[in-house]
């Protein structure tokens, strides 16, 4: 079997297109590269959707934590505390078993017991909490002069937020937010190791990598392949966020514009 045939059979295996049966023996390098790459589709799915939806909630949570009204502030603070203070791994487990119990009473929760929806929900809430804290920090460090200037020009309410507060907050938060995005993509590898079942062995990249490592008892091939894919993914993310960073800073004079230096602030 040539490598092209393997790619045709297995490239979309993780989303259920192509050959059903996984290879059982005589694993070739081509099979490992193809299947692990196929699993990466799930990592990108979880990461992208959680990041996009989490961004909206994170802005809301950050505004909530900065609010004066304790009825809004307290829930936001607790939300951030609960999701940042506990391990994501335990959150996955808890959510899975909670959905499982809820399903018995309300059949509506049926889809949430599968990874594509349930794990996505957990990742969405988790990244919203982490990014919310980052945005809150940025919100606190907006230069007061900017806001006073906005007041002087007659901005108020929604326009002031839309034109001044929000873009400045994003600009200040962007390097830390890039880091959060990278760690979110790394965290997606936990999904299929934390209760959520991989239906018909359709798992993510790490799921297939550990499948090969278990079968061949040789960790030195699949894990470096996985590492290679993730390094490419990380570089791609840094590139994308760099483009966004340039756009956010486009009004600044060229000298004071800072390139995006990704600082290794660990988060999870």
């Amino acid at each position: 079997m040539s490598c092209w045939e393997t790619i045709a059979d297995y490239a979309l295996r993780s989303i259920g297109i192509g050959e059903r049966l996984l290879p059982r023996e005589g694993f070739t390098l081509c099979q490992q590269v193809t299947l692990i790459g196929s699993g990466l589709i799930w990592n990108i799915y979880f990461g992208t959707l959680a990041l996009l939806s989490g961004f909206v909630l994170a802005t809301a949570v950050a505004m909530g934590k900065a609010a004066d009204n304790p009825l809004i502030r307290k829930p936001s603070e607790w939300f951030i505390f609960v999701f940042r203070g506990s391990p994501l791994f335990i959150q996955f487990f808890f959510a899975y078993f909670a959905f499982l119990s809820l399903k018995q009473v309300f059949p509506v929760f049926q889809p949430l017991t599968s990874a594509w929806a349930g794990a996505l929900l957990v990742l969405f809430l988790n990244t919203a909490a982490y990014s919310g804290e980052i945005f809150y920090g940025a919100l606190q460090s907006i230069p007061r002069g900017d806001l006073e200037a906005a007041d002087a020009y007659g901005f108020s309410g929604w326009t002031k937020f839309r034109k001044i507060t929000w873009p400045t907050m994003l600009r200040l938060a962007w390097p830390a937010y890039t880091n959060e995005a990278i760690f979110l993509f790394h965290a997606t590898t936990l999904v299929f190791f934390s209760g959520f079942p991989a239906w018909q062995q359709r798992g993510d990249a790490l799921y297939y990598a550990s499948y090969f490592a278990d079968k061949t008892f040789n960790p030195f091939v699949p894990y470096p392949i996985l590492a290679g894919y993730f390094i490419l993914l990380t570089l791609g993310l840094i590139g994308l966020f760099g483009v966004a960073n340039r756009r956010l800073n486009r009004h600044l004079p060229a000298q004071s514009r800072q390139g995006l230096r990704v600082r290794p602030v660990l988060m999870r």
Binding site: H186, T189, L206, A209, S210, A213, P219, A227, F230, I231
Partner: peptide, 18 residues
């Protein structure tokens, strides 16, 4: 550099066998 670019649980699973 390498630990930064790769998910940590991949390392956990790798190093235990390796």
């Amino acid at each position: 550099a390498i630990v930064r670019g790769v998910p940590d649980i991949a390392f956990f699973l790798f190093f235990v066998i390796a």
